[in-house]
């Protein structure tokens, strides 16, 4: 008899915590389903704003859905460059970036971090202009941190964040360029 009571007593905290976790998960699922489309929309707005900033003379951009590539065109309809979304895995989570390249498919036009969750004061410096401006005019094929023989200076104390950006940019952009060329896109 006493044994049974003890058993129930020991089981109670487990049941309670399970119940609380279930309740909080339900609440979060509801909140997430409401906010997710809005967050996506905000992200897109920031992306478009940065895209317009990067390609000053942009008049038109075409989005290839299946490749997730933006082909940026000027007023005359000529291609001035391409833009890609690049997701790198940083120290604190995904680093979501916009990378633009010139129409030669090699020179980097610019890099802009859209969202990240790196450590403030260290990895979060990837959002600072001096870091992002280093990428301008560099050849994508030779992109590397200066410790690896390239000419991108890493952020001191934030090697993981710095190399996450460089590696993800190089890998993703080269892969997308190859896909673009194989599909024969202008």
């Amino acid at each position: 008899m006493t044994e049974k009571r003890n058993g129930a007593k020991e089981f109670y905290p487990v049941l309670l915590v399970t119940m609380i976790v279930t309740l909080s998960m339900t609440a979060l699922i509801i909140v997430n389903s409401i906010t997710l489309p809005l967050i996506e929309e905000n992200r897109k707005a920031v992306f478009n704003e940065k895209l317009a900033e990067m390609f000053g003379e942009m008049d038109d951009s075409e989005h290839l859905e299946e490749l997730d590539v933006y082909i940026v065109k000027d007023g005359a309809g000529d291609v001035v460059g391409y833009a890609f979304t690049v997701i790198g895995s940083g120290y604190g989570g995904d680093i979501d970036m916009l990378v633009g390249i010139e129409s030669d498919m090699a020179t980097i036009r610019g890099l802009s971090v859209i969202t990240h969750s790196e450590t403030p004061g260290l990895g979060a410096k990837i959002t600072e202009p001096w870091f992002q401006e280093q990428f301008q005019g560099k050849d994508i094929n030779a992109l590397a941190l200066s410790v690896n023989g390239g000419d991108i200076d890493a952020i001191s104390g934030a090697t993981i964040s710095s190399s996450a950006v460089v590696d993800a940019v190089k890998e993703t952009v080269l892969a997308k360029i190859a896909e673009l060329q194989s599909e024969g896109v202008p």
Binding site: V21, S24, A27, L28, V31, L38, I39, N42
Partner: peptide
């Protein structure tokens, strides 16, 4: 768990 739930709600709403 309770605090984390409310914080996540706040975070998601702020982002949205």
């Amino acid at each position: 768990v309770i605090i984390a739930t409310f914080v996540t709600i706040t975070d998601l709403s702020m982002q949205a």
